[in-house]
Write a protein that binds this DNA or RNA. Structure first.
Lengths: 133, 133, 133, 133
DNA sequence: GTGGTCTAGACCACG
DNA sequence: GTGGTCTAGACCACA
């Protein structure tokens, strides 16, 4: 199965689906052009309602991660090789990074350890392919 | 004012308060033993319901960041110098890091840029004091 | 009642709600800061499901027309006095204008008549207030 | 190729075809009596299902823009010189204009700018020929 | 077959 | 009290 979710998590299911898809793209399991399962198919696989999958896909579409086609379903629209982020992206992203790192700092995680783990996560992602000519 | 919040954000207010307090500790503005404003005081300053502040403080307490005494109010319980994180902390924290980084990767932010910003955020925090003897 | 919808139209109800709200703002019936009815209240007034209103409000929020606050509900975020459109707006808007005008042209409406009606519609809108200092 | 469509747009393909044909007539690229490509030909050119083209042509026929003969295929039935619009046309058309202009107003586009763009679009259309005697 | 819309109702999170 | 989430099922639009 492509992705797993935790029904008991306090993170909404549609958000978990979004996160798992984004991670799958970063990992290289999905890449630009890859097809996602149909909403009803994925809903059946995860034993959840198809509206919830719908909401997740709609969110991914609004974030320009996938495109949705009536005929062919959901398709990955961008991956790491699809070009640099839009101008406003970092402004939204870095504050969240700051909050996450602050949490680690307060709980006593060493800055070197934070950096080490950061590098480790980045290394676990798929190497960036060259931008297609 | 110690912390500012955005009433129109989609992030719940109590969560914003938690985040700001955590960041203030990481920044060194608050340290172990520092007193937080009283719930009613902070609620008045932020023009919000004091139950909301209560909820934020309770969350911080459950996360071992502050302790709450009836007499002395809310006091910072730990900062970066208060010792290493508990055993389960990284298991909860790193997946969130992974999700955040995956988002950056998918939107095309260069891994070097991610690392650069990570180091920048860590540098903006207060240097670790020695653990008090 | 603030707005009326046509259940028999082929235009989706949530879209009609969006259109009516946008028109009410252009007409000056609603302005920046005006509160919209709560989702469940409006749903009851229109005798439709609250999820449909929810979808309409969410669409308006994504288009920066309203902001939604858990406490105070939906509030108008921008009107004609809220500053010029974002850079991409005209690129999305003018093609739709072109299609609409082409339809008029093909059906034989005189260009002068088109312009006359255009001016008439614009005159029916509220005069632009000065941007608040 | 006469017309181009965007398979990823949220606008249905049959609607896009209709729009492009109407615009081609307004532009003067097609005029009364011009033949449209056969459904199968156009479907092949656009790499879409020919039923979709059928649906678009049927819509144009119902809107009195083309007529369809088994023998001669689809032929443009009217253009700007084919006489004034029917009595109900403006009643259907102007509300859509109102909605479109309201959107521009709410997003802060200046009324003068709206009129300027309106005139620009009309100028880009083919000049009206005299009605053939 | 695909996704989109609307209805209906339960339950929760937030303030 | 507000909006948000999830479930469930019917029906429609599109290709």
């Amino acid at each position: 199965m492509l992705l797993t979710i935790d029904l008991d998590s306090d993170v909404p299911i549609y958000q978990q689906i979004r996160d798992r898809v984004v991670e799958a793209i970063a990992d290289g399991e999905l890449r630009e052009g890859s097809a996602l399962p149909s909403t009803r198919q994925l809903a059946a696989d995860l034993a959840i309602n198809f509206h919830t999958v719908n909401k997740a896909y709609d969110l991914l579409r609004r974030q320009n991660v996938i495109r949705i086609n009536r005929k062919s379903g959901a398709v990955v629209r961008r991956d790491a090789a699809s070009g640099p982020p839009g101008p406003g992206f970092a402004d939204d992203w870095e504050p969240r990074l700051r909050t996450l790192f602050a949490e680690a700092a307060v709980h006593g995680m060493d800055p070197q350890e934070v950096l080490r783990r950061s590098a480790g996560v980045l290394d676990s992602f798929a190497p960036r392919r060259e931008t297609p000519v």
